[in-house]
Design a protein around this nucleic acid. Structure first.
Lengths: 213, 213
DNA sequence: CGCGGCATCACCCGAATGGCTGATGCCGGG
DNA sequence: CCCGGCATCAGCCATTCGGGTGATGCCGCG
């Protein structure tokens, strides 16, 4: 942390107006210093590597080096600047990936100024800041209602398979014959595009069919 | 929403002192009405079904009907009250399950009053409110840095297994013998407490060893 | 320096798995 | 009314698994 000049910032946005607006806001407020600006992800990574700002305010959608890749790269390089994603609309599907990639927070640009300031401070302190909309998204992703392509019986079988139940025991458990279990499993394999139970379980988790107990 | 009297509340906590404290806070603040209190989950569900408060402030750990079950039951019954989980420490492993069960927000009891008020208003409006600590938890669950008990090689093998690779092909892929693959897998089984590859994959996902590509 | 964890390999064997072919009954949509 | 999806069942058969037992070499920690 650059103690003397408060929280140091790197602004990343392809739109100069936005950068200017942000720079204005932060420069006219004690406790913040704008170290530099970048207009794309690649630049952002370079500057961040050089200047190690406390917080990087980053737009996601940018020409010439997307924000997402930039975040990934930053974390890969072990640069400790906190990334605060600032986006215009949150209709994006990128919110989750961004967070997974290592973003510390996610805010909408229409957030009131003090919320923004506050978020930056929180981020600098390493705390996660999510705008309500994003938090909701994240939460609903956790309880994602993934429609499964599997028939009810097939899902049941798959669940038991995931628990390590053998075909024979699945048969017993569901009061059907082992042959039927095998048939169901074959269908599961076909539908999931795999050839064995282990991969089927993996797909099951990947597609959210399994995993929500 | 009970327009006339602001946001209506149901307080659920096994500790009378806490209930009292909360009641005091909310009754002395315009815009809130405490409809009732409950000291356990079962009571809470009954009262909620009866009174349909706008927001339910609920402790998680309670004797006689845990908060988690209560939340589950509420969502099951389609009761539209928003549940705001209020917990003392957040060391719990319950935060995620609670959210998955349908909690609208998750706050620590040591949150400052206005934050609490604000959270309740947000919750009443259907927005998700997470205290920073919980948000972090949630986020890190998404990119879970779960320390896997598996050795490097073992993890590799498990990953291939999840892709449906046969032992023989795993051997080829890793330039080792099939026997070695089997040995690794045996160890994986032991460490994960399962007996077959399908269950191993399931555990792998469950424990965050697999799933983050 | 010995013990434990990791990584490697071998051989045996019984049981489980997955592919294939084929069949029946039910149900709902076109 | 027929077709397709679901659910049920059967038998055959090659392959794969998983367990057991045992062995070697390397490395790090005490």
């Amino acid at each position: 942390m650059s103690e003397s000049s408060g929280i140091s910032l790197l602004l990343v946005d392809d739109h100069p107006v936005v950068r200017n607006g942000l720079r204005g806001m932060f420069e006219s407020t004690p406790g913040f210093t704008v170290l530099a600006e970048a207009s794309n992800g690649v630049e952002a990574v370079e500057l961040a590597a050089d200047l190690t700002p406390d917080v990087i305010l980053m737009d996601l959608r940018m020409p010439g080096g997307g924000g997402l890749d930039a975040i990934t790269e930053l974390t890969r390089r072990g640069i400790r600047s906190k990334v605060l994603v600032l986006t215009t609309w949150d209709t994006d599907t990128d919110t989750l990936p961004a967070i997974e990639a290592g973003a510390t927070g996610y805010l909408l640009k229409d957030a009131p100024q003090d919320e923004l300031f506050n978020a930056v401070r929180q981020a600098a302190a390493g705390r996660t800041v999510l705008s309500p909309a994003v938090a909701s998204r994240l939460v609903s992703a956790v309880r994602s209602p993934a429609p499964s392509p599997l028939a009810a019986r097939e899902r049941q079988v798959l669940e038991l398979v995931a628990k390590g139940t053998s075909n024979r025991d699945i048969a017993r458990e569901l009061f059907i014959s082992e042959a039927t279990v095998k048939t169901h499993l074959s269908h599961v394999f076909t539908k999931l595009g795999v050839t064995d139970r282990a991969a089927a379980v993996a797909k099951g988790y990947e597609q959210g069919i399994l995993g929500r107990d």
